[in-house]
Write a protein that binds this DNA or RNA. Structure first.
Ligand SMILES: [Zn+2]
Ligand SMILES: [Zn+2]
Ligand SMILES: [Zn+2]
Ligand SMILES: [Zn+2]
Lengths: 163, 163
DNA sequence: AAGTAATTGTTGCAATGCAACAAATCGCCC
DNA sequence: GGGCGATTTGTTGCATTGCAACAATTACTT
């Protein structure tokens, strides 16, 4: 499968409940397998991010998680996000200073392109080993030993363009 | 020349005085040609960014520009940065929330890959139409109408690896 | 000189992000 | 079960980012 582009821009009519449930189940299984603790807070933060396919800022997450009275401090959210990112369950969208739940079961090292719709705010992931390799080669050609390329493309998604 | 990778990771031994002078001269000429005003503040901000090839945060720029007594307010810096970015004289490094002067005379629409050295902090630009096209194609394959791709690669530069 | 547009100054604030330390909780071994 | 180190969470506080809104100034045009 390596090198094949795998597109996943969430369509408005997809089964999002299932989408959410799958992602949570995957997180559960992955943490179990790695002997990592998916604590209530971490799960709440992941669940908050899973409510949409838009990247959320720290304060938005605080509002979503702190529904019943006591709202968590920012640092609490950041710590949970750190954990989730280390385990590849959440991505950071650098150009937005925001975070999004990963709904793909790709490895942490996998190269990912984020497609960010300027209209509806939805973010899709396109994973392509070929692009990653091209970028790595370009970096190496400049005498550069690359780590993780960050690729974020702004634009208009198919659904928004159709409407 | 389109499609050919043009590498420009600044080497430690390059003639940086000339590098700076050229960039300022280019900025001058470009603003002249476009009937844009390269005011003292804007020039100071550009000059501050040109003192190194590392991306600088807003506060660092404030410190560098406000040497003689009165230091400009953050908003002043951001406004100057907006102007400089609109004219392609400065780039924003999204993954760092920082800004860097562009030392290439590429067009605003040109696709650019930033190489960010984790050791010395220097940032180089690699411009490649081929990569840009590949990315655009991948985006379009996902039904996405792409605007400006942001590509930032962390790693270790040749000089730091040698040392 | 008057009027308009562009630029800069001033004040204020929301949001990002995390350091440092205290308290609570968990996992494990005896 | 009780003790203990490791992990996680709570609390406080602050540096930084980023910009809105309005006033004052400067520059360009007629
Ligand atoms: Zn979904
Ligand atoms: Zn959209
Ligand atoms: Zn230089
Ligand atoms: Zn370096």
């Amino acid at each position: 499968m390596r090198g094949m582009a795998l597109s996943a821009f969430p369509t408005p009519d997809h089964d999002h409940d299932r989408c959410t449930a799958d992602a949570l189940a995957h997180a559960e299984a992955l943490c179990e397998a790695r002997a990592q603790r998916l604590t209530p807070i971490r799960r709440q933060v992941l669940a908050a991010l899973l409510t949409s396919h838009r990247p959320l800022g720290a304060y938005e997450i605080i509002e979503l998680t702190g529904q019943e009275g006591a709202r968590p401090a920012p640092i609490t959210i950041y710590r949970a996000l750190d954990f989730l990112m280390e385990n590849g369950l959440v991505h950071r969208i650098e150009s937005r200073n925001a975070f999004i739940a990963c709904i793909h079961n790709h490895s942490t090292a996998d190269f990912v392109v984020f497609l960010i719709c300027e209209r509806c705010g939805a973010v899709g992931e396109v994973s392509s080993g070929a692009i990653g390799e091209t970028l790595s080669n370009a970096a190496r050609a400049a005498g550069f030993a690359p780590k993780a390329p960050v690729v974020e493309i702004s634009g208009i998604c198919a659904h928004c363009r159709g409407a």
